[in-house]
Structures are given as C-alpha cells and as structure tokens.
C-alpha cells in the first residue's frame, strides 16, 4: 500500500474507533442491565476484561512476530514485535489498575494473591522485562535477534506460570466466557467493548509500527549525515 493509502486507512480506523468508543461507552453504561449483586460496579467489567483479552492478543502477536523475525530476518517483524509488546504492557496496565479499583468495594481488599491476579502481574513483568532488554541492547540487529529470543521465552513461560500457581485459592470470578455464565442480556455490551478494543489495538499498533519504522530510518540517515560532515 502506498503512503496515501496508509493515511486513508489511518483516518478510516480513527473515525471507526471514535464512533466505536462512544457506542462502547453507551453499551457499557446505559444499554447493559444493572447487575443484581454488585450493582453499577459491574460495569467496570466490560472495559477491564476487554483490555485483558486485547493484552493477551498483543502478546500472541509479539510471539508470532518474534518467531517470524528469527525465520525471515526482516526488520518489519521486529517493529511489529516491539509495538505489540508495548501495547500489551499498556493494556495489561489498564487491567491491573482497574482490577484493584473493582476489588476494593467487592472483596474489601485492593489486592489478593490469587492465581489470576498473580499471573497477570507476572505476565506484565515479563513484558516489561522484554522492553528493558530492548532498551539496553544498542546494536539494532543484535537487539532484534535477542529480543525475539526473549519474546519467545516469555510467551512460552506464561502458561507455565499459570499452571504453577493455579492451585492457590482463587476468588476471582471465573471467566464468564469459559463457563458461559455471562448473562445473555450483558453479551451485546461485552462483545461491543471487546470489538472496539480490538480496533483500538490495531489502530495503536499501526501508529506505533510507523513510529518505530521512521525512527530507525532517521537513525540511518543520521549515520549517513555524520559520514558526510
């Protein structure tokens, strides 16, 4: 796609995102029914779970891009890997901040070391570590290789983390999607929020990708300019 096509797509995605976000807020706050026991507090759920799923999607994208980089050795995949890891950390930060805010009035504690909370926190730390690794390797080729290796290690680690602490007492509500326990009247709102977060992810991923691509191009130009002068 040429540059104008990309800009067009960006505009389209931006407009879609804007409309979608308003719709998502409407669905989460007004359309969805009031939950019986938790009341309006349950409305945190729609954005909390949507960003959780989006964060996991981002880490899966990071894993795929890391593998592809090792196979193809194309910088394009490294940009995707970096962008998705950063976004995954951002979305998981939303999960980790909204979680305690929901937990305080419902469980009467901010934090509890239940498997789901602990694994989310560890997952967040794994990808912060990934970003740290990237930060401290100076050579671009080496950075891409090493971080691809770390990205693969982190993604393989995630399920093992989950299984190794799963026997701890879990008071987190079971994922409604696995158990099918989400009331049908809440489903439209949830699916809308989920879809809007996926659009948000794609929009931000593209933006972060082009930022990284131009950053590397500018770095290359700088080296050229240094040679000239």
């Amino acid at each position: 796609m040429d540059q104008r096509g990309q800009a067009r797509l960006d505009e389209f995605l931006g407009a879609l995102l804007f409309a979608g976000m308003i719709l998502a807020l409407y669905m989460a706050f007004l359309q969805a029914p009031r939950e019986k026991t938790m009341g309006d507090l349950q409305r945190i759920f729609y954005f909390h779970v949507s960003s959780g799923i989006t964060g996991l999607t981002a880490f899966a994208v990071n894993f795929a891009a890391s593998v592809m980089y090792l196979v193809r050795r194309n910088r394009w995949w490294d940009h995707v890997a970096l962008s998705s890891a950063e976004l995954g950390v951002m979305f998981l930060s939303i999960v980790l901040v909204t979680g305690p805010i929901w937990a305080k009035p419902v469980w009467f504690v901010w934090w509890t070391w239940s498997p789901r909370l602990t694994s989310s926190l560890v997952l967040w730390m794994l990808y912060v570590a990934y970003l740290l690794v990237r930060n401290y390797v100076l050579d671009p080729d080496r950075r891409a290789l090493v971080s691809a290796v770390f990205g693969i290690v982190a993604f393989v680690d995630a399920p093992i983390v989950w299984f190794s602490i799963r026997w701890w007492r879990d008071i987190h509500p079971a994922p409604m999607l696995e158990t099918g326990g989400l009331s049908p009247s809440m489903r439209p709102a949830f699916y809308t929020c989920w879809a809007v977060f996926q659009i948000l992810f794609i929009y931000l991923l593209r933006r972060r990708f082009f930022l990284e691509a131009s950053r590397q191009e500018v770095e290359w130009l700088q080296r050229r300019a240094d040679m000239v002068s």
Binding site: V122, L126, L132, V133, F150, V153, A154, D157, V161, F163
Partner: peptide, 13 residues
C-alpha cells in the same frame, strides 16, 4: 543490573 530483572519473572514457576 539487567540479569535479575529479566531472570526472576521468567523463573518464577
């Protein structure tokens, strides 16, 4: 400095 930061989250299990 970096090693413990990246090692401990991975070896947590």
């Amino acid at each position: 400095v970096l090693l413990p930061l990246i090692l401990f989250p991975v070896v947590l299990p």
